[in-house]
Design a protein around this nucleic acid. Sequence first.
DNA 1: GTTGCCCTTCGGCGCCCGCCGAATCATCGC
DNA 2: GCGATGATTCGGCGGGCGCCGAAGGGCAAC
Lengths: 249, 249
Amino acid sequence: MMGTMNRHAEDSSGPDLAALAGLLADGTRARFCLALLDGRAWTAGELARMAGVAASTATEHLNLLVAGGLLTEERQGRHRYVRLAGADTAALIESLAAMTPHRRTPPRSLPAAARRRALERARTCYDHLAGALGVAITDAMTSRGLLDWTHGAAITERGTDWLAEVGISPPPATGRPLVRSCLDWTERRPHLAGGIGAAMCRHALDAGWITRIGTGRAVAVTEAGWRALHDHLGLVAEPGPSSGSARSA
Amino acid sequence: MMGTMNRHAEDSSGPDLAALAGLLADGTRARFCLALLDGRAWTAGELARMAGVAASTATEHLNLLVAGGLLTEERQGRHRYVRLAGADTAALIESLAAMTPHRRTPPRSLPAAARRRALERARTCYDHLAGALGVAITDAMTSRGLLDWTHGAAITERGTDWLAEVGISPPPATGRPLVRSCLDWTERRPHLAGGIGAAMCRHALDAGWITRIGTGRAVAVTEAGWRALHDHLGLVAEPGPSSGSARSA
DNA sequence: GTTGCCCTTCGGCGCCCGCCGAATCATCGC
DNA sequence: GCGATGATTCGGCGGGCGCCGAAGGGCAAC
């Protein structure tokens, strides 16, 4: 691979970093990870079909990703379920994807365009909400004084009260930051992530405010969800062919 | 490379992400980027010697990294200077390095061990301070109420006053967050980054509180630097073979 | 038990990629 | 001008890696 000695190398972690990056340096593995960004567990076969590779190929990739610590696996019967190892892993992949050169290739077919629009409107990003909906919620919270962005992202006292009022209980303060900014993938704008972002997304799913569309990351806002968004944040549905976007009331 | 069709691929950015990750998936390129984490410009030859590869090899790697947007170059005469493209690039590399499996391989030779210790004590991380010194400063600022970590990293009002008192002027609020948490590489603990972290590092260099050791990232605290650290943060030098570590007074 | 599905292992193929050395170009110092 | 130094281009080599298909194992359903 290279000359044996590295006299001046002050840190030996060059190969380590390369090994980690190498896990994501393959198109198929990258597609796997992007699909897993929805935070759910996929089977090996699902991932293989999604990426268009043979099952044996998917197995080899999953072995690498699990051995590298990016994925965790869970065997159930004849199925092999894999998911992202943790929030830090998801954040890493998301930040990589956000730095990717933005190539706008409009989808060819009509259903593909519809799927694309659904993804752009509202989706989950590992464990929190993203897309136009996630950005709109974040903006509304900011303009109502629930979030403070003067020095990075932070939640205000009014924000804490608001969470309790809505019925969302933030997770106990562990190592994970409660509030984190996640750069959106399609919107190119920051939105709310971290422990509170995850709690809000979980609550929205539990309360039936949003539902998953199909098997992917895309979500749709329900009738009850629009009412809740209006009552708590003043958001109303953007007029359009299908509800999903939002704007400030 | 793979089957042509990707019917179910909802996002076409799999290959894009792989291409970006592929830039860091080589040991030599990763070493380049880690060396460039000191935020300074290196010549192609310096990087080649540091990594132990031929000059022609270094040229090819630099072409890839520049074309990929991770590095920017600057030609001066017969020299080709390269540096990291920006703070976001540095943050990406740093977060990748932080997620690397921690392999503690004690250096063989005595001078290598000394260099290693110097790096662990105090170094620059792109544009802010890291190592034991960076963590100690961050901890001291936190315990004195200048930083608030309850909801991510944020600077308090007392912190803003303290900056003015010390003579550090934070940069104007642009897109870059003023306060950011950067996970340290050797300490495995967060330390202060972002615009204010950069301003503090710059001020410490300008005021002669710290000086660079050799050509790398390592820095040493001067006499005047220790006095300033004591006066402003109550830090004193850790007793040891060479000053550089710090502890709370 | 038998069948079918999901996953895994293995061999083999082809391509890409990182490396080098030699030759060439560009620049600086004399 | 001339040599020295730094950087680039080019050809060629070797290895690693991603892909597949066929065969085998494990589990669930019947």
